[in-house]
């Protein structure tokens, strides 16, 4: 099963909807709560990044027996230095985003912490694809 979401640019009423919707779907599937939270947190960070930095984009959530893969795709400015962006506290978010409680530089580190595998592909002025992989316990989903 693949679920797709459109993530609008800088729409803070909508941002986070993909992650919270997926969280509720996974809850209905009966997955362990701790795993669901990991998936939802990692997805939320990726979703906010697309809304804030990526100029909008889309998310694809693929649910297979034993694994969940999420892909977040945008055609925004790309990440200039991925290694630097992975550092806790590093952020390029503008002041108005920080005023909303975001831009603490915890996004990518949080994705890495919560996903079993994180792959970031980014090219300046072409966009970014973030793929996160989650392993489910045997017999789930």
């Amino acid at each position: 099963m693949i679920i797709e979401y459109i993530i609008p640019r800088l729409d803070f009423s909508a941002a986070g909807k993909a992650s919270t919707d997926t969280k509720h779907r996974l809850t209905q599937l009966g997955l362990p709560p701790a795993l669901i939270k990991r998936i939802a947190i990692a997805m939320y960070e990726a979703e906010m990044n697309i809304a804030i930095h990526g100029g909008g984009g889309r998310a694809e959530i693929e649910i297979l027996p034993g694994e969940i893969t999420s892909r977040f795709i945008d055609h925004g400015p790309g990440i200039a230095d991925i290694e630097l962006a992975m550092q806790e506290g590093y952020s390029t978010a503008p002041e108005e985003i920080r005023d909303m409680g975001f831009g603490a530089g915890m996004g990518l580190p949080n994705m890495k912490k919560n996903a079993d595998e994180l792959i970031i592909q980014s090219e300046p002025n072409k966009g970014t694809t973030v793929q996160m992989h989650f392993c489910l316990p045997a017999g789930e989903a």
Binding site: K17, Y44, G101, F102
Partner: peptide, 9 residues
Amino acid sequence: PQVLRTADL
């Protein structure tokens, strides 16, 4: 509204 998204999450 992000406060409530965060709370829900």
